[in-house]
Write a protein that binds this DNA or RNA. Structure first.
Lengths: 141, 141
DNA sequence: GCTTGCTCCTGTAGCCACTACAGGAAATAA
DNA sequence: TTATTTCCTGTAGTGGCTACAGGAGCAAGC
């Protein structure tokens, strides 16, 4: 059994984040030592690592919770996982497209932006009428 | 002069968001009618529209505030704008790269994910040791 | 003048996924 | 026995909004 510091090291999940996951019920509450400290089994650490990897892949917590419950009952979970992964892929593709359009818009806006001019043509364009939104939806960084 | 509803329509900024911008000091406080309602001049509406367009381009509020103060004093603001825009472009490019790597990782993970299997190879891989992070940094949706 | 319905007001809380304290207790090292 | 490190709980902050609740103002129709 490992204290939260070791669990953090081995899973790659920040200590504060581990406690946050516990509070939110994303991972089950671990046992405690006599002094009241959290003690993690290798299995519990594997679960934390799994959450981190899914987060690294950009999955939201709500989907990860579904994944975690699917790993408990193993009958025909795979097709559901695939669907969720495909939906996530669609979202990633949409984001890439959106950012690419943003890049184009920014490039053409800042292209005329050269030193020495009193009024900046980029800010000018953004202030005036007639400028159109570059993409489909706003990128929420 | 226009009420907040008209200002929202003309600027494309949500009513609640306009009040939020005012609270946060992002745009100046407008005048009020006898009954206490906000009244916006065309110039103030143009400013709101400017903020929305910058948000659509993905600029954070802090940068937009710099832009707004640069439009007040027009001496040689342009080179500063260009620098900020270029930094923002770098960030956008980094995000696109990151998301592209994510897509590759997800594609190869879900490729083996076919129906009928009891244990899902994707969840399996994510649970086991040895899986490596796809990109440089985590994509925060 | 009165009702209906729309717009507006303030203030507060929620969203997501953390992160950063403060103030204290327990475990370990020197 | 210190000194340092690690841990504990609880709360508040991040960004950029969005969504209420509970009330007031205002315009149009009857």
């Amino acid at each position: 059994m490992f204290t939260i510091g070791k669990a953090s090291e081995q899973s790659g999940v920040n200590i504060e984040t581990i406690r946050y996951y516990e509070r939110e019920g994303i991972v089950p509450k671990p046992g405690r030592s006599a002094g009241g400290r959290r003690l993690y089994s290798p299995d519990e650490i594997a679960k934390l690592r799994f959450v981190r990897r899914c987060r690294d892949l950009g999955f939201p917590i709500s989907i990860i919770q579904t994944f975690l419950s699917l790993t408990e009952q193993d009958d025909r979970s795979c097709s559901e996982v695939k669907t969720l992964a495909e939906n996530h892929l669609d979202e990633i593709n949409a984001k890439i497209e959106n950012l690419t359009r943003l890049r184009e818009a920014l490039l053409s806006l800042s292209a005329n932006c050269d030193d020495g001019t009193a009024a900046c043509p980029m800010l000018d364009t953004l202030m005036k009428d007639g400028f159109r939104k570059p993409g489909l939806e706003r990128s929420r960084h």
